[in-house]
């Protein structure tokens, strides 16, 4: 395999691993609320993925100034978004109370 091809495939494998990690951190299969630590993990993983796309796919690793500029702008944006979710944290919405509990009759033998 050509070295550059191997480099790109390795990057893709890392991106897939990080996407899976994001799925776990974001608890994609449940309608749960996330703790602040998980919000931070999602923010960091998102930025690492974005930097990998910029550096490897878009080849900005050959232009460090541009890479830093784009990464910096994305970092500020993601940090502000995550911070807003962490500050105004929404607990799991409880189901509305719909009436008095129904009394069960004793089981028949």
């Amino acid at each position: 395999m050509h070295p550059e091809t191997r480099h790109l495939v390795l990057t893709w494998a890392i991106l897939m691993g990080l996407t899976t990690a994001l799925g776990f951190a974001g608890d994609v299969l449940h309608a749960s609320r996330l703790g602040v630590a998980f919000l931070a993990v999602i923010g960091v993983v998102t930025l690492v993925k974005a930097r990998l796309v910029l550096a490897r796919y878009l080849r900005l690793e050959t232009a460090p100034g541009f890479l830093s500029g784009f990464t910096g702008a994305l970092s500020v944006t993601v940090a502000l978004i995550v911070l807003s979710f962490a500050v105004i944290h929404q607990p799991l919405v409880a189901k509305p109370f719909t009436g008095a509990p129904v009394e069960r009759s004793a089981p028949k033998h």
Partner: peptide
């Protein structure tokens, strides 16, 4: 999409 997805779907 790398930034849109976690913002709209995951952060909560």
């Amino acid at each position: 999409w790398v930034v849109v997805f976690p913002t709209l779907y995951l952060l909560r």
